[in-house]
Structures are given as structure tokens and as C-alpha cells.
Design a protein around this nucleic acid. Structure first.
Lengths: 124, 124
DNA sequence: TAATTTATTGCAACATAATCGCAATAGAGT
DNA sequence: ACTCTATTGCGATTATGTTGCAATAAATTA
């Protein structure tokens, strides 16, 4: 399925590019100048994920957050990294810290979803 | 608030004790012999979490899973550990693998929620 | 054993996140 | 300008989890 360029896609991608934090759908909707439907935002985000332009993080609040980060821009560097969720400013960011682990025999890991929760330096 | 012993609490705790996997509310409800209300199960589980008898994991599906594991039984050993979610048998288990990380200066970590997703040994 | 206190439960309603079907719209190529 | 179909908006739907309230039942006391 060939992708098409639309104002919606562009707006969402620009927002994520400019943001240092991972954003949820509702955060994106609020921060956008133009009015975009909720379902559309989800669809755009999921397409970006499929195309590996952004990646998805699920936080302990059960919500999905999306971010562009080094992983995508520099695939040769940090693949699986930790995310940090600040309870004070309620934001999620990508940490440039790789997730290191070993698994029992015959276990195959395909992806990771690792979140550290606490207080970030801005709030300390 | 003093806790009381009830058949519901006992049934849920027995189920979690017997299970090697982390269970979601609906899984618990299905596996129980007795019929227990959904809201009640959540309240029982949340109380167990408060009392640190069990712990909660939020998976990439956004759902809450609950498990008794070494962390609780042997507080002196593995505190923060990885969890493994098998895409084949759709189960979540605690791995006896500690989460090791460092964070940038002035970041304070209060808790972790780390999940590795893939295929477990049983399904390989 | 009966009475009292209040933690616990069931039910219904509510809140929120995310998805889906469908018709309308609008990119992109001809 | 025309065609094809990816994309969008809208409404409805599903699912997860929580909350208010009255009824129930543990645990303590008399």
C-alpha cells in the first residue's frame, strides 16, 4: 500500500520531530494548530510505526506514547533503549541508555518496552 | 484500614500463587471457580499491591497483569526484574533477571516496568 | 450468643483509550 | 481532466479500569 503525503501526516511528524518527549494521541491533538480527528491521528501514528519512522511506548498508565528518537534516526546505534516517565511533569522521554538483558535458553526476544518512572532532572 | 479475610481474597491469592504466570483481571475471573464481580477483583488486586503481596505489570497491550513472584517472597533478592511476554501463548511471566540501568544526573528512579516480548521456550 | 462496627462486595454507571465500518475527500499517476 | 484508491471524519463500538452507593458479612465487643 503506497503512502500519500497529506497535511495531517506532515503536521504530526513535524510535531513529533520538534518534541523532545514522547507524545500521546491527545497531547498531539491538543498541540496541533489544525483540527485532526482522533481516529485519524491514531491511524497516522500507527502507519508511522509500521514504516518505522516512529516507535511506540506503552506506559504504566496503559496509554500509548509515540516518539521519534535516535533509534530511528541512527539505526546503527541504540536499538532498545530505556524510557523515562517523570511523575512530576508527566512526560516520557527516550533515554540514550541501552536495555541490556539475558534470557533463559530458547527464549527469543523480538522487542522491548522498558520504562523507568520517577523524577527527571528538570523537576529535581 | 484493617484487612479482613474473605473467600474472594483467598481465591484470588490462591490462583495467583498457583500460577506461574502473571494474570489479568479477566483471566482471573475466568479461571476462578466462584463468580466474582469485575470491580471486586480489581479492588482485591489493588489492595494486594498496596500490601506488596503481589505486583503489577502493564504490558504493551495496555493491560494490567498481576503476579506473585520472588520479588515479593524474597525481598532481599531481585527487586526490579524483567518480564517476558510470549506472543505465541500470550502469557506474561517474571524472569529472574534484574533490570540494570544508569540514568542521567539528577534523575531519580522510583519504579521500573520492563517487558521483553517474543517467543518463550515452551513455544519454541 | 447477640450486637456493633466497618471492611468488603455486587451492581450500575461512568471515564477513558483505542479501534472499526462506511461514506466522503483528496493525493498521485495517467 | 480523469481514474484509482489511500486517507480522512464521523459515529458507533469495544475494552479496560474506576467509582458511588446500598447491601453484605468479617471481626470485635458486650
Amino acid at each position: 500500500m503506497k503512502r500519500r503525503n497529506t497535511p495531517t501526516k506532515e503536521a504530526v511528524l513535524n510535531l513529533l520531530s520538534a518534541s523532545k518527549k514522547a507524545l500521546s494521541q491527545d497531547a498531539i491533538e491538543k498541540q496541533l494548530d489544525i483540527k485532526i480527528n482522533r481516529a485519524t491521528i491514531y491511524r497516522v501514528l500507527n502507519r508511522f510505526c509500521e514504516d518505522e519512522i516512529i516507535h511506540k511506548i506503552v506506559a504504566e498508565d496503559g496509554k500509548q506514547y509515540f516518539a521519534i528518537c535516535k533509534k530511528c534516526e541512527q539505526p546503527e546505534t541504540i536499538q532498545d533503549h530505556f524510557h523515562f516517565r517523570c511523575l512530576s511533569c508527566d512526560s516520557i522521554e527516550c533515554l540514550q541508555i541501552p536495555v541490556r538483558y539475558s534470557v533463559p535458553e530458547n527464549y527469543v526476544v523480538q522487542q522491548t518496552n522498558c520504562i523507568l518512572t520517577g523524577i527527571c532532572s528538570d523537576c529535581n
